[in-house]
Write a protein that binds this DNA or RNA. Structure first.
Length: 589
DNA sequence: CATCTCACG
DNA sequence: ACGTACGTGAGATGC
């Protein structure tokens, strides 16, 4: 296989949907790289100073038609850093780049949890070389220029260097894969997601601007009236958005109990504290209401409108494949993995996420996937049996712990058991459970002791996982993903963090692997259906499906998701997927 | 640019 | 004795 590293320079690097291809750099072996300038521009030398193409560049169309056979040649490996970005630019130009390697994902497969995987930091760490900063070409702030205005000799230095660095990193990383036994992870859980996420991001999801705009106005009105009420109660006006000013009002002027907490010595005014204070006085509760609306307005109804693409009328998030320690994706610009759902007012924001006429949004989510994985990894027969028979798992936990019958259970008992189940996944501590349930620490500790008494296998799993991490410096998912735990042997006040993260990582990471496997199979599974995969929210996939293919799509997607562990891992706990359909995301979920 | 707060799984 | 739930991204404030 011949290989080439590859780097694009673009005019608007922050938004691939709008970016113009300015140039291409290539490298065929370390130290041998070139740059192809395509769309560099300068002001004309005549009286009018119009913007014109710099002379001496290669013709755009000619270049692409010459490169296309190379980019689509299955015997030529194209290597880049963060290839999802390049793949998207090329997809917009009608080119399917394949096969590929990605140094960012190689680094992630090898060293998740150790450091970040940006090219600059990889270059400094592994090549002991600090790349030319992009800012030295573009400048910063108001005077910043776009890449098409960079002089070609400078662009050559910058872009060719990037391709060269990528080649050198690839040589290092590729040979490390088998040594660390993560070839499988890289080839089957990381690399295949590049074209899949690229397509999802380009597809985007339709968002109704008018709905958001109306909600925004309604929030603004409610906020203004709350603000007036709060200032009346406080006896003065102040900036409600400033925790510092609010803290001074509450704890100095109004003499509420509760001291400083933050490092900066500022008063802490988080929601849990305001909730406690709200039993004594009306003001803290009103602040909580105001805060909720301020959050919904600024982060969602206002900001989301800015993200609606002018050409597509849709919102195009960007997923970062190597963004987390555990194997989950993160989503940004905008983050579509934290759209409100828990509060009634927040949930309404999902009404703005809609399907095209003649289509519906279909949401499919794994039911309690992390608890199922815990039961699987730790081998807890009672839990496995419960999942196989479809028993309410939180009720079962409550029943076991508190010796109450499953039927007619007190909802508050079940709620406590649910909190304990979550706590177990997070590497439970008495303090954390006590705070979450607002019960005395001793009582929380008694709950945990009782839980481990009833499910001794969980305690064994936790101890074994911690010991494995201490010995090896990493933990693993069921599918072989490695998550490094560099702080596990560091003594001191933060040791609890590392321990809990190590316990949680195989569980969260295995769930991430499973939905990745489902996503990788999805394009083939739905290729003949009028359905598109739009979003992933950790344990949920959202599709846009033609009205006449809803049932068939649900049946196929559900099956792919439920079987996603096979054949690599034969789960002894069933994975179950629940589906919802609607014109909007609010209805579908 | 750090800190606080809060939205999600 | 210590100080804590796991994993994220974004907006507003204020130094």
């Amino acid at each position: 296989m011949r290989l080439v590293t590859w780097q694009l320079t673009l005019k608007l690097p922050l938004n691939e949907m709008m970016a113009d291809l300015v140039g291409i750099s290539l490298c065929i072996k370390p130290g041998h790289a070139c740059y192809i300038p395509l769309s560099h521009r300068e002001n004309n030398n005549d009286l009018f100073g119009a913007e014109v193409l710099v002379s001496g560049q290669l013709d755009f169309e000619t270049t692409l038609s010459l490169l296309r056979p190379v980019l689509e040649d299955e015997s030529i490996l194209k290597i880049g850093q963060n290839m999802k970005y390049d793949a998207k630019i090329l997809l917009l130009l009608g080119i399917n780049i394949s096969p590929i390697d990605d140094t960012m994902l190689l680094s992630y497969s090898l060293n998740a949890g150790l450091h970040n995987h940006s090219m600059d930091s990889l270059s400094e760490r592994y090549l002991n070389y600090k790349p030319v900063p992009i800012k030295s070409l573009l400048g910063s702030g108001k005077a910043a220029i776009t890449f098409d205005r960079v002089k070609i000799p400078e662009a050559v230095q910058y872009a060719a260097e990037d391709a060269d660095i990528t080649m050198r990193l690839w040589c290092l990383f590729k040979s490390e894969l088998h040594k660390k036994r993560v070839t499988n992870v890289y080839e089957n859980l990381e690399r295949p997601l590049v074209p899949i996420l690229a397509n999802m991001e380009l597809t985007g999801i339709k968002v109704d601007r008018d709905i958001l705009s109306r909600m925004s106005n309604s929030f603004a009105q409610k906020m203004a009236s709350l603000e007036y009420e709060i200032h009346e109660l406080a006896g003065e006006t102040f900036n409600l958005g400033s925790p510092k000013q609010l803290g001074e009002i509450l704890f100095e002027k109004m003499k509420f109990a509760g001291g400083t907490k933050g490092k900066a010595g500022a008063y802490s005014t988080g929601a849990d504290i305001l909730e406690d204070l709200s039993t004594e006085h009306a003001l803290p509760g009103l602040v909580l209401d105001w805060r909720q609306l301020a959050k919904l307005k600024s982060t969602y109804t206002d900001a989301l409108q800015e993200h609606i693409n002018k050409n597509t009328g849709r919102v195009h998030t960007s997923y970062l494949i190597s963004g987390t320690n555990t194997g989950r994706f993160s989503s940004s610009d905008p983050n579509l993995q934290n759209i409100p759902i828990r509060s009634d007012e927040g949930r309404k924001i999902r009404e703005a996420f809609i399907a095209e006429p003649g289509f519906k949004l279909v949401s499919l989510d794994y039911s309690q996937i992390e608890l199922r994985i815990l039961a699987e990894i730790a081998g807890i027969d009672e839990l496995k049996k419960a999942f196989r028979s479809g028993v309410d798992i939180h009720a079962l936990t409550a029943s076991e712990m508190f010796d109450v019958p499953l039927e007619g259970m007190d909802p508050s008992i079940r709620r406590q058991a649910k909190a304990i189940n979550f706590g177990v996944i997070y590497g439970i501590s008495g303090f954390g459970l006590a705070r979450n349930l607002r019960i005395p620490r001793a009582k929380a500790q008694a709950f945990i002791d009782r839980y481990f008494e009833r499910f001794p296998g969980i305690k064994v799993y936790m101890d074994q996982t911690k010991e494995f991490a201490k010995e090896h410096g990493y933990v693993q998912t069921l599918f072989g993903r490695r998550i490094n735990t560099p702080n596990i042997n560091v003594k001191g006040p933060h040791s609890g963090f590392a321990r809990r993260a190590a316990i949680n990582a195989p569980i969260q990471g295995t769930a991430a692997d499973i939905i990745r496997r489902a996503m990788i199979r999805m394009p083939y599974a739905i290729k003949d259906l009028p359905a598109k995969m739009l979003l992933q929210v950790h344990d949920e996939l959202i599709f846009e499906v033609s009205d006449d293919a809803i049932d068939k799509t649900i049946s196929i997607v559900k099956s792919v998701m439920e079987k996603a562990g096979e054949p690599a891992v034969k789960m002894t706990v069933p994975l179950t997927v629940e589906a919802g359909v609607g014109q909007s995301w609010a209805e579908a979920h």
